[in-house]
Computed example of a mutant assay.
Amino acid sequence: MKNRFFLTRLRVRYLCHLLFFMVMAFEVTAQTTVTITGKVTDVKGGPLPGVSVTLKGSTTGGVTNSEGVYTIKLTNGTGTLVFSFVGHKKQEIAIAGRKTINVELQEDENSLEEVKVVVAYGTQKKESLVSSITTINPKELKGPTSNLTTMLAGRLSGVVAYQRSGEPGSDNAQFFIRE
C-alpha cells in the first residue's frame, strides 16, 4: 500500500514537471524575436535615407536612417519585406531565415511625372505650374486695421505692397507682383 502511494505520488510529480517544462518551452518559443538589418542603396550605390521598410500584411516596419541602414524586429524569421521610396520602384524580398538583407532600389521614371501639387482650388501636375504659389492663413489677417490690403502687406513672398497716402479713407495699398 505504501509502495502504491509512493508510485502515484511520483507519477503526479513527474507529470507536473513535464507540464511545467512544456509550458516554459512554449513561452520561450513564442517570445523569440528576430532582428533583421540591412542597407538600402540606389543604382549608383549611394545610401537612400527615409525608405519605408514593412513586413507585408502587417503594420510592423521602420524607416532607413541617413546612411540607408534599417533595423526591424520580427516575432519570427519568415515573411516578405516591402521596400518603398518616392521615385523608386517598390521591391518585395522574402526573408527566408536571413538576418541581413541589403537592397538596391531601381528608379521609377514614370512616378516622377505624376507628382501633383495641391493649390487653393484643387490639384495640378507639377509640370504644369509655371509660377510660384504662396498661401496665407486667414487667421493671420486679423489685426488693428480694418483694411484687408494693408494686412496683406509683407505677408506674401514676391508681392510688394505700398501705400501712397495716409489720408483717411484712401488707405488702400497698391501691389507690385515680382515676375
Rank of each mutant, 00 (worst) to 15 (best):
M1K: 15
F5R: 08
F6P: 00
F6Q: 12
L7D: 05
R9D: 12
R11M: 15
Y14K: 11
L15W: 12
C16H: 06
C16Y: 08
H17F: 08
L18V: 06
L19G: 11
F20Q: 02
F21Q: 04
M24R: 06
M24I: 14
F26P: 00
E27Y: 15
V28I: 12
T29I: 15
T29K: 09
A30S: 15
Q31T: 15
T32V: 08
T37K: 10
T37F: 02
G38H: 03
K39M: 10
K39A: 03
G45A: 01
G46M: 06
L48I: 08
K56P: 06
T60S: 11
T60E: 14
T60F: 07
T60D: 14
G61R: 00
G61T: 11
G61D: 01
T64I: 04
N65R: 02
E67V: 05
E67K: 12
V69I: 07
V69F: 01
K73Q: 02
L74G: 09
N76A: 06
G77R: 04
G79E: 00
F83D: 03
S84P: 03
V86E: 13
H88R: 10
Q91V: 13
I93T: 06
A94W: 01
I95T: 01
G97T: 02
G97R: 01
K99V: 06
K99D: 13
K99A: 08
I101R: 09
V103G: 02
E104M: 12
E104K: 15
L105P: 10
Q106Y: 11
E109N: 02
N110M: 12
L112V: 04
L112Q: 11
L112P: 07
V115Q: 05
K116L: 12
V118K: 15
V119M: 04
A120V: 11
Y121F: 15
Q124G: 09
E127N: 09
S132N: 15
I133P: 12
T134A: 13
K139C: 09
E140A: 14
E140W: 01
L141Y: 08
K142Y: 08
G143L: 02
P144S: 06
S146P: 07
L148T: 13
T149L: 13
L152K: 07
L152V: 10
G154T: 01
L156A: 10
V160P: 00
V160Q: 07
Y162L: 06
Y162I: 01
Y162H: 12
Q163H: 07
E167A: 08
N172W: 04
A173Y: 14
I177N: 08
